[in-house]
Nucleic acid binder design. Structure first.
Length: 284
DNA sequence: CACGAGACCTGTTCGC
DNA sequence: TGCGAACAGGTCTCGT
């Protein structure tokens, strides 16, 4: 499910500033945040959800800690606790929700954190790919990530250095989290369309201008995704609206909004890629 | 070392 | 209708 905009949406809902909720006309009871809440106990229903430490150590260490902050790095959700950091990666089907402890446990709930005040935080993950880490230093988990695409510290020229050094398809390079953190299959396809770049283009075939334009396009689609609370497809992840703004993703055979050509689908690096053969001329 | 294929999982949809 | 194949927001690991 989740790429940067979906993860950002979840993080914002977990931060849940009171004023924002009131502006939306929602009460704390309907969309409670987790900052400031103290964990009383935890339950682990699928052991492999926990990357580190062991279940016994986790259950012992987590009890009594208060959530001091919630943030995002790439596609990771970072909960800062008193003594340690709890990180989640939702992978394909993970989700986090906050609810009362009397709510029924759901089929794919994998990890539950109970708070002292009758609320709980639940990690639900149908496909069991998601992971949680409880560590002293978040960097042990996050150190391999490239820069945040929405931060202004990264430039097209810096990406050109990485991309131009590779003969791999730019579609694959966009998914490489060590080059740029947070872009996934939906937003890479949408960004390549916006930039007018064919997904099979080799990194080394891109000019600096191409890289500038592609970084701008990545930022544009990520921002639009965030503004629309992410994308909701199928049964996974609810509340987002960006699926109604896709130009190419999962639109195989439909007419390109710009030129009318049928959108095509290709498998690149074992991921499906959607593109307009006319607006994104092949230059690899 | 860089790259691609397979593995990890469950659920839905598509084609015969 | 039934049943297997294909496919799904991601990333590790292993072999070449």
């Amino acid at each position: 499910m989740p790429e940067l905009p979906e993860v950002e949406t979840i993080v914002r809902s977990l931060q849940n500033p009171k004023e924002w909720l009131l502006a939306e006309g929602q009460s704390m009871r309907e969309r409670p945040g987790v900052i400031g809440r103290q964990i009383s106990s935890a339950a682990l229903h699928w052991e492999r959800t926990l990357a580190v430490p062991t279940p016994a150590e986790f259950l012992q260490h987590i009890a009594g800690q208060t959530i001091q902050n919630v943030s995002r790095r790439g596609k990771f959700i970072v909960l800062t606790l008193d003594d340690e950091v709890l990180l989640f990666h939702l992978r394909m089907s993970g989700d986090l929700r906050v609810e009362g402890q009397s709510a029924p446990v759901q089929t794919h709930d994998r990890l539950i954190l109970n708070f002292h005040d009758d609320l709980r935080l639940v990690f639900n993950d149908t496909r069991k790919f998601g992971r949680a880490w409880l560590v002293k230093d978040a960097q042990t988990v996050l150190s391999g990530l490239g820069p945040e695409p929405l931060e202004l510290t990264i430039s097209g020229a810096a990406l050109y250095k990485r991309w131009h050094a590779s003969s791999r398809a730019i579609k694959t390079l966009l998914l490489d989290q060590s080059i740029l953190a947070g872009v996934g299959n939906i937003y890479s396809d949408e960004a390549l369309f916006l930039a007018g770049i064919h997904p099979l283009s080799a990194g080394k075939a891109l000019s600096i201008e191409d890289c500038d334009r592609l970084l701008s396009a990545v930022r544009t689609v990520l921002q639009k995704g965030i503004e629309n609370n992410g994308a909701s497809i199928d049964w996974v992840y609810r509340g987002g609206d960006f699926q109604n703004h896709f130009k190419v993703y999962q639109r195989t055979g439909e007419a390109c909004e710009v030129c009318g050509s049928p959108i095509q689908r290709l498998v690149i690096g074992q991921r499906s890629s959607h593109f307009c053969p006319v607006c994104q001329p092949n230059k690899y």
